Simulated scan of single mutants.
Amino acid sequence: MSSLPKPAAWTHPLPVAHPPADLAIYHLPTGTYETRAALAVRGGSFRDKRHFAASAVLIRHPEGDLLIDAGFGAGVAAHVALLPRFVRAPYQVGRTVREQLDDAGYDRGRLLGVLLTHSHWDHTSGLDGLRGTPIWMNANERQYAATDPDGKVFRQVSQGREIHEYGFADQPYLGFDSSYDVHGDGSVVIVLAGGHTTGSVIVFVTLPAGPRYAFIGDLTWQIDGIRRRVERPWLLSKLADSDPGRLRQDLLRMIALDGLMRIVPAHDLGSYDDIPLLTREAAARSH
């Protein structure tokens, strides 16, 4: 196994953020699917079976809430059937995002939209239960999703949906060239990390008490990619990544930030451990 060279740690001050006192995040797990570690990161073992998370994260903000990704939807079986046979894996289904929101008594009218880290099936399946909620995408990902074979599920679940297209006009952020500050207070900042898909993004969230999170989508599938500085296996990267060179650069940027914030790869189940689930009490506080 060959690790990437260790980048210099980030030594500049972290960006200023003024999150409102009631900003909060919640984990909405919708299921898992099985993948061997050998297929997830270089140097992984075929004996090490990983349960890849299919999750969403709710960001509660007084100016309107966002979901990061949508996890598995009610139609997940049909969505899996749209995939090439060689990428299908055993999966376990939990409650959909819509079911979790409704069971908690959450007012879905508070949602500004579903902010996709990218448009692959395991991030978009749950859009089938969130009709009426806009889909947030940048122009690069919108074009990718409209034409790439891996956008089949997205194209099905997004038919007739409102797409909110955002750009990256704000200043550089943590080594990334440009950013989009969603609320203008530094609490939720999106950066383009277009290596996995051409419009993949990372979402940085700063909580009121100071903890910071980086929701990195599929920059790496498991936290091993950050901690052991390893990329996807060569063949999997060839199949899955639009620009492996750019992905490597962005992975090194995030490795340099490890320890300064909680880094959450979308499919690493353990990385969500300290993010609370949405309860009726928590949902009531968001009204």
Rank of each mutant, 00 (worst) to 15 (best):
P276D: 09
Q249V: 10
Y106Q: 03
L112H: 12
R227K: 13
Q222F: 10
G160H: 11
K6P: 15
A104P: 07
R108E: 09
L278K: 00
G210I: 08
R88G: 07
L4A: 02
I275G: 05
R246V: 09
S3N: 11
G270I: 07
P172G: 09
A24W: 04
D148M: 08
Y91F: 15
R285A: 15
T30A: 05
T30M: 04
R142V: 01
L101K: 00
Q249R: 14
S158H: 05
S55N: 15
K152D: 15
L83Q: 13
R142A: 12
Y213V: 06
G194E: 07
A209N: 11
R155T: 07
R47G: 13
F86L: 10
L174D: 00
E63C: 12
V230T: 10
L252R: 12
V16N: 08
G132N: 06
N138T: 04
I226G: 04
A56I: 03
S179G: 05
H164V: 12
R131Q: 12
K49E: 14
Q143S: 11
V182G: 02
R95C: 12
D273A: 11
G71K: 00
D65S: 10
S125R: 03
P62T: 00
G73M: 07
L277M: 09
Y272Q: 02
T197G: 09
